[in-house]
Amino acid sequence: MFWTSWFLAALAIILAWPVPVLLSRAHWPARAPFAAMVLWQAIALAGGLSMVGAMLCYGLVPLGGNLAAGLRGVVDIILGRRSLDELGLVHAFALSAAALLSAHLVFTLWLTYYRIIKQRRRHRELLTLLSSPSLDRPDTLVINHEAPVAYCLPGGARSITVLSDGLMTLLSDDELHAVLIHEQTHLAQRHHLLLWAFAAWRSALPWLPTSKLAQRSVSSLIEILADDVALRTVTPNTLVTAIALVASGSAQLPASSLVGSGAEQIDTPATTSARLGRLLTPAPAMGTGGQALVLAVALLLLAVPTALLIVPGAFG
């Protein structure tokens, strides 16, 4: 138990700092966006698990040789069958910290969900009053505004894609088609659930480099995944023109200079550059072997802390 806790602590630190920093600087994720996405999820989950696990194991050291025995000991203490003195102050502190951190993570996840749902509901309310349904496209609304804007609002069966008048006059039919496929891919692949989880991860642990880097990389990877699906139907040229037109069009608006400064953007210009760079000079997708390796590493990352925690006597 003692060595398990130290090993988990070391894993937590590695996953909180050097690994995400290296991964966010790497170039291969753009060539294997799906595998990279899985890896980021594994890093976040394994990181959280080892953080909580390290404190839990350390706290349980005086009570038993493995997790089950230790937890039984805690129950005995709560029921008064064993004395709290057996645990000691430091270990009791570690256990409380583990409980607090778990509660904090779950609570933040819930709170973020609630906040997102509330904002979406309000947005949808205004949209139904201000927009009109597109004549020839299902689940698409058109809003009367000169800014070239396209976005999707997830909501299960009520998910909608919103286009502005400005966008529809700016883009040709093919380019508009590219934009729509891109947006519908976000909805079909449930990207909003990923963004929710990583937004919660960031607000729970804002001081950890990993949470910020993970959110940024994930939001860039989903754009790449959506672009890739669009490229099955339209040419890279069409997509590039659409991206460039929409991006430069919205940059000229007073609204974007108003809101663009100050607060930090998550989908930074770097994302736009990365997307364009990828489309203009396409790099070959990573080989099957490479992608399998990344997925195996992700699996291992999840399996190691889990095994250490639940297999009795797996480590020291």
Binding site: I116, Q119, V149, Y151, V179, A242, A247, G260
Partner: peptide, 22 residues
């Protein structure tokens, strides 16, 4: 539109825009 173009903390998770601010 401010909500769409803006940078509210959870905006990314609320709605997915075709392109970010440049």
């Amino acid at each position: 539109m401010l909500e769409v173009l803006g940078s509210a903390p959870d905006r990314e998770a609320v709605l997915a825009r075709f392109i970010g601010t440049v």
